[in-house]
Write a protein that binds this DNA or RNA. Sequence first.
DNA 1: CTTTGGGAATATGTATACACAAAAATACTT
DNA 2: AAGTATTTTTGTGTATACATATTCCCAAAG
Lengths: 241, 241
Amino acid sequence: MELVNTDVAYKFIREKILTGVYLAGSPLATKNLSKEIGVSRTPVRDALRLLEADGLVTIKPRIGASVKSMDLQEFKDLCGLRQALETYAAGLAAQNRTDSELAEIRDALEAMRVIVEKMIKAADDRELLVDLAREDVRFHLAIINVAKNELIKKEIMRLSLINRVVSVPPTGKKQREDLNTRRKVLDSHQEIYEAIAKKDVAAAKDAMDRHQQNNLEKVIQLMGIKEQTKFHSELGLAAAN
Amino acid sequence: MELVNTDVAYKFIREKILTGVYLAGSPLATKNLSKEIGVSRTPVRDALRLLEADGLVTIKPRIGASVKSMDLQEFKDLCGLRQALETYAAGLAAQNRTDSELAEIRDALEAMRVIVEKMIKAADDRELLVDLAREDVRFHLAIINVAKNELIKKEIMRLSLINRVVSVPPTGKKQREDLNTRRKVLDSHQEIYEAIAKKDVAAAKDAMDRHQQNNLEKVIQLMGIKEQTKFHSELGLAAAN
DNA sequence: CTTTGGGAATATGTATACACAAAAATACTT
DNA sequence: AAGTATTTTTGTGTATACATATTCCCAAAG
C-alpha cells in the first residue's frame, strides 16, 4: 500500500473528528486544513470526499464541508440500520459458530461481567468504564466475526464510528441507574450468548434485536431529557453498546 | 441545488456503468474521461471518488480507477447485507403500515400477478419481462417506503444498483423453469403481503427472509452452471428481485 | 434600531502544469 | 530466441492559479 497525501489528510481530519477536536457542525475549510496539515487543497478535498462516504462529513456544493450532525430522526434511522445488521449477524453466528469461536464470545462476556462486578464495589468507576466499553465492543465484534460477512462487518464498524461522533453526551451523574442498565446489558449479552451456544438462530436474532432496541430507547430517553434536536458527542461511551 | 461539473461527470460515468457500456473491471482513466466528458481531470476524479463510495468503482493508489468487479464471496456478502435490510424493513412495514400504504403494496403485487398470467399465455415474454421487473421493484420499494427509514432505503437502493452491474447474466433459455420460479416469487410476495396486512411482524420478517434467501440460492445456482468466479452483468434482470 | 443593498473579502470549483511512479516499448545480454 | 535491463511513455497525485459563487461587513434607508 502506497501512502499518498490524501491518506495523510484523511487520517488527520478523521482523528480530529473522532477525538472531538472538530465538533459536529463545525466547518471544514479546505484552505485552513491544507495549511494545518501541510499539503495542498487537492488531497484535502479528496480526504473530505472519503470522509463524506464514511458518513462523518457533509459536503454541500459551493458551500463546503462540515462535520456531520444529525437530527433525532436521522439518529433513530442510524440505530435502526445497525439493529438490522447486528440482528442478522447474530443469526448467522448462531448458525455457523465453531466451538472456539463461541469461546471467544464467552470470554468477552465474562470479562464484562468481571468489570461490572468490580464496578459495584468501586467508588470511582471512570477508568473501569473504558475497560467495560472495550469488552463490550469485543463481544459484539466477536459475533460479527463469526457471521463471516465482511461487508456487514465493515458497515457495522462504519456505523459505530458515526455513533461515537454524533451521539448523546455522557450522563455524568446518576451512577446508580447506570449500574442498573449495565446489569441489564449484561443479561442481554448472556441471552445472546446462550442462543448462539445452542445454535438457536431465531433466539439469537430475537435476543440481539431486543438488545439493540433497548439500547436505542435508553439513548433516546437520555436525549429526551436534554430536549436536543441536534447534538454531538463529547466522546461519551453511552452509545457504544 | 447547484449543478457543478463534478455532478456532470458523476452522472455521465454512472450512466455508462449502469447501462453496461463500461463493463466490470474496465479501467477508468481520468484523462480519457475528462476529454470525453469535456471537463478537466479534477471533477472527474471527484466523480470517481463518489462512485467508489457508491460501490460501483474501485480506486487503487497510483494505479487508478476501474469499474468494480466482485468474486462470488463478495456477491454473497452483498446479498446477505440486502437480506438483512429488506427483512428488517418488512418487519417495520408490518408494524407501521396504514391502510393506504397497504393498498399500494397490494397494487404492486396484483400488477405482478397480471403480468405473470399474461406470460403464461404469451409466446414471447421479453417485453413483459421489463414490466415484471418494474412491478417487482415497485413491490419492494413500497415496503421499504412504509418502513420509513431513509437510511435503510438509501442503502438498499445502493445495493440494488451494484446488483444490477455486478450480477449474473440472463439465462436466455429454459423459459418453462423461469415461469415456475416467477410463480414462486409471486407466492413469496403474496406471503409477505399477507403478513404485513395482518400486522404480523414476525411473519413478515420470516417471509421476506426466505424470499431473499430463495433469490440468492436461485442466482447462485445460475452462476454455478457457468463456473464463474468473477462476473459482470449484461444488464440482466435476474437479480432484480 | 432593524433591515436592506452593494461591495470587499473569502472560499469553493475548476483548469492546468509538473513531479514521479507505473506500464509499455525498446534495446541488450545470454 | 528468450529473458532481462533500460529507456520511453503514459497517467496518477499534487500544487497552484484563476473564475465565480458565497459570505461578511458596513452604509444607507425605512
